[in-house]
Design a protein around this nucleic acid. Structure first.
Lengths: 228, 228
DNA sequence: GCTCACAATTGAACATGTTCAAATTAACTG
DNA sequence: CAGTTAATTTGAACATGTTCAATTGTGAGC
């Protein structure tokens, strides 16, 4: 799907310059307001050329998404190297998500809806976004595994995927957040990360064993059925 | 938002005929494949006329959504009148959702993404969809209140809204469900409704009191902040 | 029945995502 | 360096959602 990799020096520059123009314009004007013609103009390239490297406008969004992920991964490196407490790691990671995305808040609505569209091959569960999805899930695996908390293996197995979903939920909330400085989202992050860590520790209680087993096997079966 | 109510006999017929054409075509060909021109053609009306009654193609989707809700509400009436067991009521209601929507499965992806778009005024949390949202939440309130289960009032207060969200989650899963007869979704419904009922009853355990309070106050604060 | 304000209707025009066949340029081979 | 192949670039053409000024129909008040 990541069609038409450049085969030439010139091609590489073109691709890069188009992508940069798109990222800039998305940020300046938002997604809908940015036309493919405007992107081509700013990149000093013809309309057709843009389509040579990016099969659709949506594919540029996917690149945008990747861009923010890279920023995010970079931003939390120190935290993950330093802190061993699961709650702190999770909280820091989530805070970094929205801090990283803050410059794009105005655009994020369109981005999100484009990516969430089940009809699009770019949707988060589809094949086209698998590479990026795997990276994000791996990042959460590191958040979990690098902590000193001892997490039961059945939970640890599913947790990264669940946290990836959780991140999407937080982002969706953040998109709607009209509070000054998006402080509301930060509060929600603090509350929910605490809650998650607490629930994980509670999951060992005998009364919760049954539900825990059900939840995990449900998640597992869902993941498996999607994989096929 | 529901712009331009017909003021005339002729106007009413036109609106109805356009809507019917749209619903039919959405079902026959899917959302994207149905052009506004095709709708106008089938309705034997000009392109401009369609826009007189429906400000955009998305608004036709909202009508589509309302249509399925009405079907659903009708379908579960007997169940809600008969059965008093919460698990049964919830399970039946959810099963009816996907049975009702089954004819539209092919279209549902586009519908969902259109409606989920945070940038659209039609998104489920926005003002334009409030009337319908209120109806759906009220329906889940009836599911809960009509049961014989004694549900703590703090939970009962939030539950209908939570179930509305849950329904959207199930629909999202169902859209991706490729299993024959969408049996996978039915299984997931059975599992999750059981789980929900069980968790509600567990919520009275002393160890869970803290988490329960946190979850509910979090939900409440989110709802309140959205309302303003 | 006449008139007039307003509703309803129309279709051309516009903006924008996308496609494609043709032209141009780069890279490689002998 | 000449020639050939493949990558790149181009801009015109297309489809479709949307807008709007102009036209036509309708019904209320006299």
């Amino acid at each position: 799907m990541a069609i038409a990799a450049p085969k030439t020096r010139r091609g590489e520059t073109s691709r890069a310059v188009i992508l940069q123009a798109a990222l800039d314009l998305f940020q300046e004007r938002g997604y809908e307001a940015t036309t493919m013609r405007a992107i081509a103009d700013r990149a000093a390239v013809s309309l057709g050329s843009s389509y040579h490297y990016f099969p659709s406008k949506e594919h540029l969004v996917l690149e945008f998404y990747r861009h923010t992920h890279d920023l995010h991964a970079e931003a939390i490196k120190p935290l993950l190297a330093r802190d061993r407490d699961l709650a702190a790691r999770l909280r820091g990671t989530m805070r970094a998500v929205i801090v990283t995305c803050e410059p794009f808040h105005a655009v994020a609505g369109s981005i999100f809806s484009t990516v969430a569209n089940p009809a699009s091959p770019l949707n988060p569960f589809g094949p086209a976004s698998k590479p990026l999805r795997d990276e994000v899930v791996a990042l959460y695996a590191e958040v979990v595994n690098g902590s000193e908390s001892r997490i039961p293996s059945d939970i640890a197995e599913m947790l990264p995927l669940a946290l990836w979903l959780y991140q999407m939920g937080i982002l969706y909330f953040w998109i709607f957040d009209k509070s000054p400085g998006r402080l509301r989202t930060l509060e929600v992050i603090d509350d929910t990360t605490d809650l998650i860590v607490r629930l994980i520790s509670l999951a060992n209680l005998p009364v919760l064993r049954g539900s825990r087993r059900r939840v995990l096997s449900l998640m597992k079966s869902i993941v498996d059925s999607q994989a096929s």
